[in-house]
């Protein structure tokens, strides 16, 4: 038992070590290659940014979660078809039910924008990548559609586009043969920075009641950091050491 726990504890550390070694090598060979700074990160005088969400499940009814999903569909132009096995799933509704008490609650489940993303580890072409501000994305220009990342993701957050698409939206280019997932509304973040509101949050937040709070996890003064410090929140499957950027309250 103790050896198992040790292994779990060691894995992220080992990964960090290997990553550090790789980054060092890259810096020596070609300085700057690994330093993907985002526009917003550059504007912020190099202060480190890690975007994340806190989802308050106490404040979300089933209809709120449905509103999240449909807002994401409207924003990015994906939709549910009759074939649920191959449907796009940028965000989906997950229901949790306590068998004993019958208590039920609903959560939006999307890409968790991990700090140690397994999808990035397994990608053979480097298409699956983590931006400097912590957003995990698929670069569809280099994605070959092998779907290793879909198998590696413990949250089942990614989906594959099986059919030829038409009428894609300018903010969300997507096409057959590539993998896709929640982008944390990256086009809004690149435009508005810390003031950005992802489409799902926009759909459920009313006034001061912020069921989904977006912000910079690395800034101790940000609203999201203060809420986390005050109320705490759960990382899903924290035992895997992936350190997701999406946190859930009230579970």
């Amino acid at each position: 038992m103790s050896t198992e726990l040790d292994n779990i504890e060691l894995r992220p550390a080992r990964r960090r070590f290997l990553k550090g070694a790789a980054a060092l090598a890259t810096t020596l060979v070609a300085p700057g290659v690994m330093l993907y700074k985002t526009g917003q990160a550059a504007n912020d005088n190099g202060k480190s940014i890690r975007w994340g969400l806190v989802i308050d499940s106490n404040a979300m009814s089933e209809s709120d979660v449905d509103a999240c999903v449909s807002a994401c569909q409207r924003e990015h132009g994906w939709k549910t078809t009759a074939n649920s096995a191959t449907d796009a799933q940028w965000v989906r509704k997950v229901s949790l039910r306590d068998a004993e008490s019958g208590h039920q609650r609903f959560l939006p489940m999307m890409c968790q924008h991990c700090d140690n993303p397994p999808c990035v580890d397994v990608c053979p072409t480097g298409a699956s990548f983590k931006r400097a501000d912590g957003i995990v994305l698929v670069n569809r220009h280099t994605c070959i559609g092998c779907r290793y990342c879909m198998m590696a993701c413990p949250y089942k957050a990614r989906s594959f586009i099986h059919e030829v698409l038409r009428d894609q939206l300018p903010v969300a280019p997507r096409g057959k043969g590539t993998v896709e997932s929640c982008t944390l509304c990256v086009h809004r973040i690149d435009r508005d920075g810390a003031d950005a509101v992802p489409a799902c949050a926009e759909a459920v937040n009313r006034g001061d009641r912020k069921a989904i709070l977006f912000g910079n996890l690395n800034d101790p003064q940000s609203e999201i950091s203060q809420r986390l410090r005050q109320l705490g929140a759960l990382k899903l499957r924290a035992d895997m050491g992936l350190n997701p950027g999406i946190r859930y309250q009230g579970l």
Partner: peptide, 9 residues
């Protein structure tokens, strides 16, 4: 490439 990787829009 600058848009996808670095968010310059």
């Amino acid at each position: 490439d600058t848009t996808v990787l670095q968010g310059e829009r």
